[in-house]
């Protein structure tokens, strides 16, 4: 357990030691702004809330979070530092959790840096700040979900491009599984239980429930379970690579 902190620290510092962090944060904030103000018509809506802003989060995360996650393991494997890291006297789960937490904390910082939009909306009107806080928490949890998926996929390859593309596809499936594009495919022939199960996997379903202003414990549990599940997949993948190949 005591080893989580040094690995977390090293991993977290790496983001800022390279241009990665700054490039990511700038693009993240720029994209958030562009989507919210131009595509989402934030001003024209004339409503003092951030639902437009949060509505775009799943779609932005879909591309930006795999970009962060792709290097997590693929790069370690490519440069050989994986060998160094895994022969240190640290349990594998601790290494996996530390790296995940560092990446999650980093996305948390990027998310927190969107605070000017919160100031803006408070300046323009009087929004329900409780809803906004809930939405931020939901968005952060959702980012963790995307990140856990991306990290597990990154562990499967030493090629970051493959890690990125596969992560985007898997994340996309998790995002849209509650949308008509997927549900229509099941509706009509599959039993309702299956349709509901597929829908319940969707990030959108759980995220929009939270952004409505209600932090239902089930939605929180959903995201934490998903993160835990993919961290386990991450551990298993690394362990299998030890045995095979």
């Amino acid at each position: 357990m005591s080893q989580v902190w040094p690995i977390f620290r090293r991993e977290f510092a790496t983001y800022f030691a390279t241009p990665l962090a700054y490039v990511f944060i700038v693009i993240f904030l720029f994209a958030m702004g562009a989507f919210t103000f131009y595509i989402g018509n934030f001003y024209a809506n004339g409503v003092a809330d951030l639902s437009v802003f949060f509505g775009y989060h799943p779609w932005l995360y879909l591309f930006l979070v795999p970009a962060i996650a792709m290097r997590l393991w693929a790069e370690e494997r490519r440069t050989g530092t994986m060998e160094l890291l895994l022969t240190l006297p640290v349990p594998l789960w601790a290494t996996v959790v530390s790296k995940f937490l560092a990446a999650w904390a980093f996305t948390g910082i990027a998310l927190a840096l969107t605070f000017p939009i919160w100031l803006t909306v408070n300046y323009l009107g009087s929004p329900d700040n409780g809803v906004i806080l809930a939405s931020y928490i939901g968005s952060f949890l959702m980012a963790g979900g995307y990140l856990a998926i991306g990290a597990a996929i990154s562990a499967m390859t030493s090629n970051q491009v493959i890690a990125f593309v596969v992560s985007v596809v898997v994340c996309f499936l998790f995002t849209v599984s509650g949308a008509p594009i997927v549900l229509d495919f099941f509706q009509g022939w599959a039993p309702l239980v299956l349709v509901n199960t597929v829908a319940s996997f969707s990030f959108l379903t759980h995220f929009s429930a939270i952004t409505a202003g209600v932090i239902d414990i089930r939605d929180v549990i959903y995201f934490f379970t998903l993160i835990a599940l993919f961290l386990c997949v991450n551990i298993v993948v690394i362990d299998l690579k030890r045995v095979a190949r």
Partner: peptide, 17 residues
């Protein structure tokens, strides 16, 4: 692993550090 000091092939290290 606590008792081992290991220099892997190619001496990998975190290059940005």
């Amino acid at each position: 692993q606590r008792t081992i000091g290991y220099l892997p092939e190619g001496a990998p290290a975190y290059g940005d550090m």
